[in-house]
Design a protein around this nucleic acid. Structure first.
Lengths: 224, 224
DNA sequence: ACAGAACCGGAGGGCCACCCCATTTTGGCG
DNA sequence: CGCCAAAATGGGGTGGCCCTCCGGTTCTGT
């Protein structure tokens, strides 16, 4: 790849009206996808943008490409976050925090998880976002592994698949964020009891508190 | 609710031709769903069954009801399996085995996971399969919890959601079964490295007494 | 055999993705 | 400034899907 950054380094810098319509479409798509998820009607998106449907299909030949464009900035933010976290002192916690952040973005931006997963298994153009996320996470996982905070046999793809799977199926529930976080915690820490399972403790000192409620739970998957 | 058992005790036992078409539709649906997943075209199903589309909609007013009918026997098998496993000596392992079985059915029967999850959050008629599975699993989980082989804060719904989430997103991959099993293991045991990677060492029979060692948990949850 | 109930399926409406091509808009150049 | 070819547009057509009416057909009890 020629390795550029921005939208694209067009040999011919896109005509003014084309760019205008492109931007309108992007905005309309963001809106519609936020409301109706990744399967929002393309025609309605075009309609909202005040543009013919043919124009939409010309700018974004596939739904996937549209989604990628819509979520590009969110994905970049996530990658930046990964870079930040990579500087921290606790690789295990950093990875966990980042995965949680991914989940957070996925639930608060309907369609993101879908876009990511579709990019994962579609060799068709537009797998860029998936690749970006994967790269960003790979670094975090590598450090966690070195610090012996993650099994050597787990790949970043596994982890991200899990996160996306959770977010995908929880996406349309009322309190998606809480549920996703809860399930993610479960997946990261395992099902087995973590510590002395105090049942009737009237004092939810530490463990019990996290047990009963989803909460952010800063708990890493380390046994306390 | 009158709550009966078998398929249904129809006051009027269904006319012969109606039953014939019903069966044809079911067979065609099973075929189409196996090939194309839960979103298979209803019209094509009717077409394959050699039946007008109106007939399909008359017998199965919603897609969900069709899916439920298609998968009913698989779900019953799964419930039976749960009952079998409940008799075993090791509740923790029984639960894990059963969840794996659920995953196995879900990956080898496209659309099952979808049907189950849709039934979960749709109050519309046809949530029977989801309820059956949930009930079956609840018993297993209760025993596992008593044996201290599962955290008290995890619900059967969480577990099944996780299983279905994994199967759903892995469903259309080439080696879905292997991948699903892999991710399920990961989710059940957690990401943290096991202290002593399963070596030739004999099982500590009393791993249930585990207090602080993650290794015990990994053992408990490993595949049979 | 007959009448009425149960059942069927073609036709049609509303919506959608995608494509073709006549028409309009841009932007560089004389 | 005006011209014109290339770039971009969008109305309309095609084919598919889901779902519902409704006139015609088939079954079943007597």
């Amino acid at each position: 790849m020629p390795s550029d950054s921005r939208t694209s380094p067009p040999a011919r810098p896109m005509r003014a009206d084309a760019r205008r319509n492109y931007d309108r479409l992007l905005a309309a798509a963001a809106e519609a996808v936020a409301e109706q998820g990744a399967e929002a009607s393309l025609e309605e998106i075009a309609r909202r943008a005040g543009v013919g449907s043919a124009t939409l299909h010309r700018h974004f030949p596939s739904r996937q490409q549209l989604l990628e464009a819509v979520f590009r900035d969110k994905v970049e933010a996530l990658c930046a976050r990964a870079a930040d976290l990579a500087a921290g002192p606790d690789p295990g916690r950093a990875l966990a925090t980042w995965l949680r952040a991914v989940a957070g973005h996925a639930v608060s931006n309907r369609g993101l998880a879908t876009a990511l997963m579709r990019g994962a298994h579609d060799p068709t153009l537009g797998a860029t976002c998936h690749a970006m996320i994967t790269n960003a996470g790979a670094g975090l996982l590598a450090r966690a592994r070195e610090a012996n905070a993650a099994r050597p046999d787990v790949s970043i793809t596994d982890l991200l698949t899990l996160v996306n799977a959770i977010c995908l199926t929880v996406e349309q529930e009322p309190d998606a964020a809480a549920h996703a976080d809860r399930l993610l915690t479960l997946a990261l820490t395992g099902v087995h009891p973590v510590a002395a399972p105090a049942e009737s403790g009237p004092h939810p000192a530490d463990a019990t508190k996290q047990n009963s409620l989803p909460s952010g739970s800063a708990m890493t998957w380390n046994a306390p």
